[in-house]
């Protein structure tokens, strides 16, 4: 299955190996963003840093929250909370494919024994108005990575193209360790399993997402967050320019609240588009503002004031 000489990597060693590998490629190894997000791309280190001309290399693990995917810890493949490993290289280097394949080798996937292929999949995240061209990378028919050349963010075309890699960590670990149930994954080499760490969390959060969250509260909080984005962007402060990063945090929170309402079945099909549209508009406003600020910082010109 994996390189014959070595014991398959535990879940945490998989992460540490990727950290070591991408650190060597010059990436800043960041920690997860401390706001709930539905996808690792939404970390400001990716979605905002992809804007502007400034070179940027980073890698990090990001928990992704997908409330509707909760299965009370019963499904071997589906989780409402899981990890993505994100790499962003801006501008994308010429040898990104080789670097990526190197990372698979590092975690013990021997390309001479497996069938690794790049299958067209053009990534798009309408919520943040982002899109790119690329592939899903298949290993023996399983999608292990989303590989994207960012072409636009926040509805605008990027100045410099970033290469983005998103590894599904649990899936990759299940493959490397050859287990069929995510909860059976070895979390470390000292006897702790993924189930020991996360099973109870999956149970309780599934019940919360589907049964115990309070729709009225969620709705009210969503509206608070939504209102605050605009308010924060328009509030005068001692810096003299817009507080786009805190505003963006509020967009992320609104987005997560929307996902929670969705899990409760509280979003009618007809309302859905309107909610997504509202989040997208806020997100786009932040992206545009960030891009303008970045450009100004880059040109050493004054940052556009309020």
């Amino acid at each position: 299955m994996t390189a014959k000489s070595a014991e398959p990597l535990s879940f945490q060693d998989l992460i540490l190996t990727l950290h070591a590998y991408w650190s060597k490629q010059g990436c800043a190894i960041l920690q997860p963003y401390d706001v709930e997000v539905g996808a690792g791309t939404l970390h400001p280190a990716t979605v905002l840093r992809a804007l502007g001309k400034k070179p940027w290399k980073a890698a990090y693990v990001q928990p992704s929250r997908r409330p509707v995917d909760g299965r009370y810890g019963e499904n071997p493949n589906r989780l409402q909370h899981y990890y993505q490993y994100q790499v962003i290289l801006k501008p994308n280097p010429d040898n990104l494919q080789e670097l990526y394949l190197g990372s698979l080798k590092a975690i013990g996937l021997d390309p001479d024994l497996h069938d690794i292929r790049f299958v067209e999949d053009d990534w798009e995240n309408p919520t943040v108005g982002a899109w790119g061209l690329g592939w899903e990378v298949w290993c023996d028919g399983m999608e292990v990575t989303q590989y994207t050349y960012f072409q636009g963010v926040g509805g605008i075309e990027v100045d410099v193209v970033s290469g983005e890699l998103t590894y599904g960590l649990e899936r990759l670990a299940m493959y490397v360790q050859n287990v069929d149930n995510v909860y059976d994954l070895k979390f470390n080499n000292a006897g702790t399993t993924y189930g020991d760490v996360f099973k109870e969390q999956e149970r309780q959060f599934s019940a919360f997402n589907f049964e115990a969250s309070d729709v009225d509260t969620l709705k009210r909080q969503f509206e608070d967050m939504e209102r605050n984005v605009t308010r924060i962007l328009n509030t005068e402060n001692s810096l003299g320019y817009k507080l786009v990063l805190p505003a963006y945090d509020h967009v992320l929170k609104a987005s997560h609240l929307f996902n929670l309402m969705d899990a409760r079945g509280a979003i009618a099909v007809a309302e859905r588009q309107s909610y997504i549209g509202r989040i997208r508009d806020l997100c786009k406003a932040c992206a545009l503002e960030w891009a303008a600020q970045e450009e100004a910082r880059n040109d050493a010109a004054p940052i556009p004031s309020l």
Partner: peptide, 20 residues
């Protein structure tokens, strides 16, 4: 597949069967 693996493709078959 796009590979002529040394093991005659046993690993590749097994992996694909799992995904299916």
């Amino acid at each position: 597949s796009n590979m002529a693996a040394a093991d005659g493709g046993e690993e590749i078959k097994r992996g694909n069967a799992k995904v299916l």
